[in-house]
Design a binder for these strands. Sequence first.
DNA 1: TTGTGACTTTTAGTCCGTC
DNA 2: AGACGGACTAAAAGTCACA
Lengths: 71, 71
Amino acid sequence: MKLREVLAQNLKAFRQAQGLSQEELAHRAGIDRTYVSSLERCRYGASIDVIERIAEVFGVDPVDLLQKPLA
Amino acid sequence: MKLREVLAQNLKAFRQAQGLSQEELAHRAGIDRTYVSSLERCRYGASIDVIERIAEVFGVDPVDLLQKPLA
DNA sequence: TTGTGACTTTTAGTCCGTC
DNA sequence: AGACGGACTAAAAGTCACA
């Protein structure tokens, strides 16, 4: 499984776990709403800068967004 | 500390620990020689695709390249 | 609320060097 | 062996309208 796919899944999972819409997350992270959508759809492979900013919004370590689910 | 700085430090540390030159690492990861140098100097923030490929060369989890030193 | 196509701007990443 | 730069190309970052 590609790392960008892991990111996409974790991104969606963290976002929904915190009850945020794509739009709310985008606003708080200072990025575009459609870009969040693109990341969750694996349209792009994100840069580490974007990963870092999103992790800040979630209040987690950036590493957590790239960690494969144990299952 | 910025995530791209963490990557830069870990990249250099892993590379030297395995006794690889920048050029050898670049060749094995299928990226450019000067780009490895650039990453270690924080000239760029890498994409997750590049991080993944470099981690494969080192034989480690991509997450390990982004983990801050415990010290 | 989210997905998508078309688009422009910025940056990643390459290739050529010199020091 | 590696730092560093200029110039270039591919891809990401970011915006918008519309379904």
